[in-house]
Design a protein around this nucleic acid. Structure first.
Length: 423
RNA sequence: GGAGGCGUCGCCUAGUCAGGUCUAUGGCGCCCGCCUGCUAAGCGGGUUUGGGGUAAUACCCAUCGCGGGUUCAAAUCCCGCCGCCUCCGCCA
């Protein structure tokens, strides 16, 4: 939720922010008029309610005829209060609807435009070269016995799979390595619920434009999360976090579920784009002032993970139109996928500033004044399970279908240096 | 899933049966001040969180787990829901 004061005091900035994302400013005007209506309705209700309370006090003390007369007055007033309250509630709903549909204004630094208008910030490592025709992860996976796509489809449908043998072991190794790195960097380890109530989904901005991608449990107010950002953001909802407790850094493991609506026919091969995967996600609560530096730290930790896997990758600054509802700025790390001859997203880190915190009512106390103020929330992928496996297999493959294990990962595979194809 | 108990402004707590200065009591903790070689004690004051309003005050409204209802008036009465605890059943 954007700051009501910003909307009121500087609506042109919000209009410009809408334009930068390629969205209409109509909702800004709707919100402004709803705000005026709402405040008028509140004033009217409160005046009547105050009068009702004042008379109520007199009724309590009055006797006989005087009491009867007061009761007559106050009965009429009660109806007016009820009416005014209904008007107030309606006005507040209109305001909420409008303001909740305004996304977080993008950072000034974020590139303008849509999906293709990203800016490459840096490219790390060198493109892997092969003196043989490189296989894609599906072929390699079959040779290694790392996953079973046919049975995944049989049991659960398209975009499902089983990780098997070395694939399952790689999954465990990656998650453990990621958690160890997070712990070493001061994160609190968390295993988070993958089912959450609508409040958590709404609060993190996933029931707006992204709602089509979310699985809902039939007959219950429960949703399958697409990322543990959701339960982690809601973790401290309705709380006031002591200033000296910030930043609070969590690294959460959870399964992630995505309908992938609207991506029919896209990345249908293998385990790249699937309905379910697992992920270790970094999540930070801090102050808005600190959030920008923290965002850089999250990016640095993501790069540390990419480096540990000895991948060739680039970092992009995602354009305003391609940011999620909540993000003010987003960096993606994209690894080179040899079979596709292009960079693909492996990790993503967003600074949501105080946008999610306003919706979820998470505050801290500002400096000396003691005033409460919304915190900032940030998230970043440390390790999703499938795409790193893909990048790893394709990057470190050898002519015979074996795969070299990056040194940092070896201890997590019992010292294994090379993954060998099954006989 | 069944039975019972509980939910009050950081923590504890009074108030709920008999609705009306409850504008929510008291204690602990915390903050400010006085006193004081220092500290403690003592004394005085303050201490939920939102919202409206104002240049800023003042002032006003909401908030007793949540949502409805009854009533002129609800922490208090009625209905529904949620959470926690105890016991039983089931289960990993």
């Amino acid at each position: 939720m954007i700051d009501a004061r910003l909307l009121r005091d500087d609506p042109d900035r919000v209009r410009a922010a809408q334009a930068k994302r390629g969205l209409s400013a109509e909702v800004v005007d709707r919100a402004l008029s709803a705000d005026a209506d709402r405040r008028a309705a509140i004033a009217s209700y409160e005046a009547k309610r105050a009068e009702q309370k004042r008379l109520g006090g007199q009724v309590a003390k009055a006797q006989g005829e005087e009491k009867q007369e007061l009761l007559g007055q106050t009965r009429a007033l009660a109806a007016e209060v009820k009416e005014a309250e209904a008007a107030r509630v309606a006005a507040e709903e209109a305001w909420n609807d409008a303001v909740l549909s305004i996304p977080n204004p993008a950072a000034d630094e974020a590139p303008e435009g849509g999906e293709d208008d990203y800016v490459v910030l840096e490219t790390v490592g060198t493109k892997p070269e092969f003196d043989f025709t490189p296989r894609d992860h599906v072929e390699l996976g079959a040779m290694l016995g790392a996953f079973d796509l046919e049975r995944g489809a049989k049991v659960s449908g398209s975009r499902f799979y089983f990780l098997t043998g070395i694939g399952a072991r790689l999954h465990r190794a990656l998650v453990t390595m990621a958690m160890d790195m997070a712990a070493a960097n001061g994160f609190t380890e968390v295993v988070a619920p993958a089912l959450v109530k609508s409040r958590a989904m709404e609060g993190t901005g996933f029931l707006g434009q992204a709602a089509d991608d979310v699985y809902r449990i039939e007959g219950q107010d429960l949703y399958l999360v697409g990322t543990s950002e959701v339960p982690l953001a809601a973790f401290h909802s309705d709380e006031i976090l002591p200033a000296d407790s910030l930043p609070q850094r969590y690294a959460a493991f959870s399964s992630c579920f995505r309908k992938e609506a609207g991506s029919h026919g896209k990345d249908t091969r293998g385990i790249f784009r699937v309905h379910w995967f697992d992920k270790v996600e970094m999540f930070v609560y801090t102050t808005v002032e600190e959030s920008f530096a923290e965002h850089q730290r999250l990016l640095a930790w993501e790069k540390e993970f990419m480096d540990a896997l000895e991948l060739h990758y680039r970092v992009i600054d995602v354009a305003a139109g391609d940011l999620g509802t909540s993000a003010q700025r987003k960096f993606d790390c994209e690894a080179w996928i040899a079979s596709q001859e292009r960079f693909r997203e492996l990790t993503s880190t967003s600074n949501c500033t105080d946008f999610q915190a306003r919706r979820l009512d998470i505050r801290t106390r500002a400096g000396s004044s003691g005033e409460t103020t919304p915190v900032a929330t940030l998230n970043g992928t440390l390790c999703s399970t499938n795409r790193p496996i893909i990048a790893l297999l394709e990057t470190h493959q050898q002519a015979d279908g074996s795969v070299r294990v990056p040194q940092a990962l070896q201890p997590y595979l019992g010292g294994l240096e090379v993954l060998e194809p099954l006989a």
